[in-house]
Amino acid sequence: MSVDRKTFVFSDVARTNGAFVTDRRSLEVVRERIVAAIRTSVADAGADGVVVAMSGGLDSTLTTALAVEAVGNENVLGLGLPCHKTDAAHVNDARTLAEGMGIDYEEIQLRPLLEAFEGTVASELESESTSDASGRPDERTHAVGNAVARLRMVTAYYAANRQSRLVIGTANRSERLLGYFTKYGDGAADVYPLGDCYKTEVRALAKHIGIPRRIIGKEPTAGFWATQTDADELGARYDVIDPLLYRLVENDLPIEDAVADLRIDRETAREIESLYEATTHKRSTPPTPGIPDRGDDGTDSLR
């Protein structure tokens, strides 16, 4: 297996603590590389700063902290973008964290936008939502959840356009490899500071730079519905997912060898592998027809 990597590459970082970057020395190198890359991206774009959508979770908190180090707290805008009642605790965390970092912070309630969307667009295109017998939300609920993620990114880019800033994405490598993000929602950004870091490494880096333990210890969730968690959606926790993905993607091992090496459930491993394969389109630039005599602009071709 292979994946096109267009974020920051840490191939030269020593891995003295196994496959993942978790020792202090290597984490410091990664920290310096990420901070320098954010600073360079802002300078190259001639931007005045960055915008980060803050969920109150680990990834967005770490991303914001690294952005502050890169460009200064006066040049970072945090956005709290709640949409559901269950977002209240998380947005309170985001607000507190933003205040602690000394950055500008704006909180915008997106519920009215979602209600307008459902009353105009969704009501015309979809039948009434139902749930299956397991209680898991149906496909329409997933589609609405994706719409919320895109409303958040519309808001972030509006702020960026109005204030000459870059939008900083918060997705990590584990999420990117599994397509665990909304295309053109939280998957849209100008820079992905954590894009080469597995979730295992995100946690280690967060501890290294002093992110509060209560944030590091939060159960990962995309916040699509009240009880949603990453583990439920992906079929396993990251301490299972990351070692498997590393072997499949970085080491290019066959699934049988990876399963034997890790001694994990074969069906779970197959499901994770299938997620990786099925979400290739999320990690690729949309293809063009490949008309002859046109210059290569870096996009994929339909040929």
Rank of each mutant, 00 (worst) to 15 (best):
M1G: 10
F10P: 07
F10E: 08
A14Q: 14
A14W: 02
R15E: 06
F20G: 04
V21K: 09
V29G: 01
V30E: 06
V35E: 08
A36I: 03
A37F: 06
A37P: 02
S41Y: 11
A43P: 11
A45R: 05
G46L: 07
A47L: 06
A47S: 12
G49R: 06
V51S: 13
V52M: 12
G56I: 01
G57H: 02
D59R: 08
D59N: 08
T61Q: 04
L62V: 11
L62N: 07
T64F: 00
A65S: 10
V68G: 11
V71N: 00
N73Q: 13
G78E: 05
L79Q: 04
G80Q: 09
L81H: 04
P82R: 00
K85Q: 10
D87L: 04
A89M: 01
N92H: 12
L97M: 14
E99Y: 03
M101P: 03
G102C: 01
G102T: 00
D104F: 03
D104R: 12
D104Y: 03
P112I: 00
E115Q: 14
A116I: 11
G119K: 02
T120I: 10
V121W: 14
L125K: 10
A133F: 05
D138F: 00
H142Y: 06
A143E: 04
A147W: 03
R150P: 10
V154T: 15
A160Y: 00
N161P: 10
R162C: 11
R162M: 14
R165E: 09
A171H: 13
N172K: 06
S174M: 04
R176G: 01
R176P: 00
R176D: 04
L177Y: 07
Y180V: 02
T182C: 05
K183F: 06
K183L: 07
Y184P: 03
Y184R: 13
A188V: 00
A188Y: 00
A188E: 00
Y198E: 13
K199L: 07
A206N: 11
K207Q: 13
R213A: 14
I215Q: 09
G217I: 00
K218E: 07
E219M: 13
T221D: 02
A222I: 02
T227K: 14
A231C: 08
A231R: 14
E233L: 08
R237T: 15
L248I: 06
N251A: 08
A260S: 15
L262N: 15
R263M: 12
D265M: 06
A269E: 09
E271V: 11
I272R: 15
I272P: 14
E273P: 04
L275V: 02
A278R: 13
S284D: 10
G290E: 01
P292C: 02
R294C: 08
D296R: 11
